[in-house]
């Protein structure tokens, strides 16, 4: 574990690349935040590390591609996982044509439906948290996720993705969401309509959104 190379300083963790028992690995360390109260900081980092490890392997078990976990250290708040040699969807999206967007977001929709069906919400479905490699996608960063089957949590999960699309990729957001919703409904089946209706409702709860807070559709 001698040669760790810092490859990304994210918002809440530092990512190092190195070798773990001969495997090409990512070391994700949640670092202490100087701006936060020390007790609160400790609590947030250890809960999220443990939860993320559980969710990453839980997701894989239900057929959603994620990195393989090699090791978890709650004291160092570190997860060691397999290195995925992919590119973030955030980087690829601006150069994608409509057909490609349709294909990739159908896959995203299918995977998110599988997660939800398996009782997992991701909690931070931005295009930075989806890696693409040869047309296959991997989900990373489950630190804000949870094990839940609640309609509200599923709705919020999708609402946040839609909003992230609109703020970062305004041009393609409509098509992307459409493809997503279609694939999500197809995979999830009966419950999907209810979830997507809730997404609309959550959106209207936002401050000053047209249509008001208490109107239905």
């Amino acid at each position: 574990m001698a040669d760790l190379k810092l490859i990304k300083r994210g918002a809440e963790a530092e990512l190092y690349r190195g070798e773990w028992l001969g495997f090409d690995a990512i070391f994700k360390r949640r670092v202490r935040k100087a701006y936060r109260n020390a007790d609160l900081d400790r609590l947030i980092r250890s809960t999220r590390t443990s939860l993320e490890a559980k969710l990453l392997s839980g997701a894989k078990r239900i057929g959603v591609p994620t990195p393989v976990i090699y090791s978890v250290d709650l004291h160092k708040t570190e997860i060691v996982m397999s290195y995925i040699d992919g590119t973030t969807l955030k980087k690829l999206l601006p150069d994608m044509g409509d057909a490609e967007i349709n294909v990739i977001f159908s896959v995203v929709g299918d995977c998110v439906a599988k997660l939800h069906r398996g009782g997992i919400v991701h909690g931070d479905l931005t295009t930075s948290n989806i890696l693409v490699i040869n047309g296959k996608i991997f989900f990373i960063d489950f630190g804000l996720g949870e094990y839940t089957e609640s309609l509200e949590a599923r709705g919020v999960d999708i609402h946040l993705m839609r909003r992230a699309l609109e703020s970062s990729h305004y041009q393609s957001s409509r098509l992307a969401y459409q493809s997503f919703a279609e694939a999500y409904s197809k995979t999830l089946g009966d419950g999907a309509e209810e979830v997507l209706r809730r997404v609309g409702e959550i959106r209207r709860r936002g401050r000053y959104v047209d249509g008001g807070r208490c109107m239905v559709d």
């Binding site: 109260n37 007790d39 609160l40 931070d124 479905l125 804000l144 909003r163």
Partner: peptide, 12 residues
Amino acid sequence: FIPLPYVVKGQD
């Protein structure tokens, strides 16, 4: 420090 609900959902 008294623990209180810390609610971050994605960017919100």
